[in-house]
Design a protein around this nucleic acid. Structure first.
Lengths: 238, 238
DNA sequence: TAGTGGTCTAGACCACATG
DNA sequence: ATGTGGTCTAGACCACTAC
């Protein structure tokens, strides 16, 4: 089951992406859309709000909804995107090497970051991401076993993300992301093709479920020349 | 004039921040809030949607709105935040040095980035940001003169952002931000205290006005050890 | 079964932009 | 004066959670 305003959003978004609706033109007015989709104006407005948040349109009071050129914003890395999704959008054939998959008793930094007790167990996964024959990214994942009882090498080679959402039906709701630049660790030097680079870009990801419980901590360590983060932000006037 | 749902948002947000409403508890139900604020449920829901987007609460179907511990997410650098706002939140006494303030005919990269014609003029501002006695950030701003007829050294030493929003009443609506790591340029080496660091973190900012016109391009070049970017993202299920 | 949030409706009034 | 988006209302039905 999908809702009416999501269907309207998808339909308009698809028309913008396909070019059926040109950029730099105005959408039909909310009143016209209301009639066209046989719905109420508030429902149309929910769809338009989504389009605005996703960078498809700019609403201008008194005038209308301007279709903007979203292709300029290439969104791939923004938001919560997994390596698999990312690689698919880039279109390159990536390879994932699972360096480690183990079940640990939590301690130190990880215990604190994941807010674990001594009774908990935690999965540790270490993976190297290879693009164009070079080892570019080192991913270290820590998952609370309470939410993920079973995990295999095959799952880790594919996408943990997919497994969690599609197989386990865990609903990921929000994440805090932190981007830093660090000196390469011994692990980085061992597992990545650093080729003389003096820094790595570290993305720390704290992933939360629908009920606001923290269940995953991920560190993604990139070679700096292959790193790019794109963000689209609306200025909030609050 | 401020709207009802923004007032409700502010009031609840303030109560959460002050601790008057504890984290890990549920807010009153939407029906109760509706009565308490003498309004309709949709208006309450607009306020709660905002609280959710800003990371104050997590809505759980069938249960209620859980207050989450937002202090864990220290938001400062996320979104569209100017250096001045940022420094204020960090609480340090920063210093801004204006290295250059000039009016140019657009050419090359900048002309293309700002989508300028030969008839336009463009402001170029180059500023060094000093924190704790060290030159840490190099900011290069390019502004379309069409929108900003006048600009002085004093304004640049304070906050261009404030000037645009408060004096000129330009309404900034959204921005695209891009984060990269680059080799330091000759300029970087001259103007920053790099102290042996081999990379700079470059934040490219494309700033758009309310009518979706691009009017500012900014490059912010950071010493890598002083750089930190924090982002809070909700997983969109679209 | 009762209470919660998620969606939807058919109106209404307002502020802003344009001719 | 007309049309646009921004806000608000007082209902309604649904899906989910909890008891």
């Amino acid at each position: 089951m999908t809702t009416k305003y999501l269907m309207i959003f998808s339909e308009i978004a698809e028309q913008i992406e396909s070019g059926a609706i040109s950029t730099h033109t105005l959408l039909p007015s909310e009143n016209e859309l209301k009639d066209r989709f046989c719905t109420s104006r508030e429902t149309i407005r929910k769809a338009l709000t989504l389009l605005s948040q996703k960078g498809y349109i700019q609403k201008i009071r008194g005038k209308g909804s301007l279709v903007i050129d979203r292709s300029k914003f290439d969104f791939p890395v923004s938001g919560l995107v997994s390596f698999k999704e990312l690689a698919e959008k880039i279109g390159s054939r990536p390879r994932t090497i699972v360096n480690e998959l183990s079940l640990l008793k939590p301690e130190g930094y990880i215990k604190q970051q994941l807010q674990l007790s001594n009774k908990d167990s935690v999965w540790k996964i270490m993976r190297t991401r290879e693009i164009g024959g070079k080892k570019i990214i080192l991913d270290k994942d820590y998952l609370n076993k309470k939410y993920v009882p079973e995990l295999t090498k095959e799952i880790c080679e594919d996408s943990i993300f997919d497994y969690l959402e599609k197989e386990l039906n865990l609903s990921i709701s929000f994440a805090k992301k932190e981007i830093l630049v660090e000196e390469p660790s011994i692990e980085d030097r061992e597992l990545l093709d650093l080729e003389g680079f003096h820094n790595v870009v570290v993305i720390k990801n704290y992933v939360y479920l629908d009920d606001a419980s923290l269940f995953q901590y991920t560190e993604s360590r990139h070679r700096p020349d292959k790193f790019r983060f794109v963000d689209f932000a609306r200025r909030s006037h609050v």
